[in-house]
Design a protein around this nucleic acid. Structure first.
Lengths: 217, 217
DNA sequence: TCGAAAAATGACCGATGGGTCATCTTCTGC
DNA sequence: GCAGAAGATGACCCATCGGTCATTTTTCGA
């Protein structure tokens, strides 16, 4: 996808190594999270450490490339589902896919909160994803499938929560998240006993630039 | 509480420093999470680094002490609420308190998944807390306040998820978690459109020993 | 085929952070 | 108020990790 597409003018060996690196990073980050070391990824790719930094100036750049790919993949799924016949079922399927993806890739969930609130590319990918979630949510609301005081942004944030709820037991019960997805979706379904407290989160200022969300550790 | 209670036979200065250390650690871990360094805590306590290791042989021991205190505090709140007149409201208040505590203490949520699945003391405290959650949940179910196919363990895990959903925006909207607590509680309320998928998680084997849950990174 | 540019390499650097230990300080029982 | 034990100190050790760079290897157009 976007980050994985080779920049033009690369020498043959460079292009090959770049692919190897992206594949290796995806694998290693998925399993060990973003705290995996550059050395680990270099080894997995069968390449020297210096080569990693030739392709990605900092570790964050590499993580960002991987995470953007995942977010774009999810956005593509969402786009496809936004034309489904049953909008509420489509939203549920979107959420299922998203949490499942998180459960298979430890880096995805980390990146959404950690270092990348201030990374341009990740921000943009996250915004695209939120946009799709907004569409899916809106369609389900039109169908009266879910309560109308939740937003796409709410849905995105809840995806993170659902995965994290089950995460402590993920080694033991890898699909436990389905249980909590069901609870949350039930909560989204009908207009509840009362409206939700607090306004929905809004990541955008009137100017269109994103609000700072988080400080890097 | 348990971990904070001074072991007997300590010299006066040792006892004083131990208190200073526990207070400092609670403060620093709450703000910066468990990745805060020992040096940082020593400085906050006004004590040399070596002193920290005299009182707590490893960093994990110190983190465990702090986390146990927090878990026990929460368990105490739960115990008090388990005698409330309105069990469903009591459960909701328990959950509110728990998520609020997480939002004020970054270490609490980290510790529940990270290094401490295999720490005796933390495990025991978590078990005590789960026990209380079980009672609160059971009472709310008897009152028909929440669906009867959720368990106290589910509630504990969901607490983590609720906090984590709002965490990416916690700097910007510190009480956003109330919104997602409302969604989840709505999901817990009445018997939904269908029973929850998957059996509830069960941390205990028939022997009573806890199942291994997570590998340390 | 050859030579220059591009890329790969891996030893190296500096910062960080957990943990140790010889030495100095403080407490406490007598 | 003294002696010896308990405790505090901080310099030090070592492993890890992100990142750099001089040197060597590979590519590829002419």
């Amino acid at each position: 996808m976007s980050a994985a597409s080779e920049p033009p003018g690369l020498r043959a060996d460079a292009a090959r190594n770049r692919r190897l690196l992206l594949d290796a990073a995806a694998t290693v980050f998925a399993e060990h999270g973003t705290q995996a070391s550059i050395a680990q990824i270099a080894q997995q790719a069968g390449v020297a450490k210096g080569t990693v930094f030739r392709h990605f100036p900092t570790k964050d750049d590499l993580v960002a490339a991987i995470v953007c790919d995942q977010l774009d993949h999810l956005a593509a799924v969402g786009t496809r589902l936004s034309e489904a016949a049953d909008p509420t079922a489509a939203l549920f399927e979107f959420m299922t896919t998203a949490v499942d993806l998180q459960s298979r890739d430890r880096s995805l969930c980390q990146a959404s909160a950690e270092v990348f609130a201030d990374n341009r590319a990740v921000q943009a990918a996250a915004d695209r994803l939120t946009e799709i979630a907004e569409v899916l949510t809106g369609r389900a609301q039109t169908q009266k499938g879910i309560r109308d005081d939740v937003t796409g942004q709410d849905v995105i944030l809840l995806l993170r929560g659902i995965y994290q709820a089950a995460a402590p037991l993920s080694d033991h019960q890898p699909t436990l998240w389905r249980r909590y997805l069901a609870v949350v979706f039930e909560g989204l379904r009908s207009p509840g006993t009362q409206p939700l407290p607090l306004p929905a989160p809004d990541l955008f200022r009137s100017s269109g630039t994103r609000v700072e969300q988080h400080r890097a550790p």
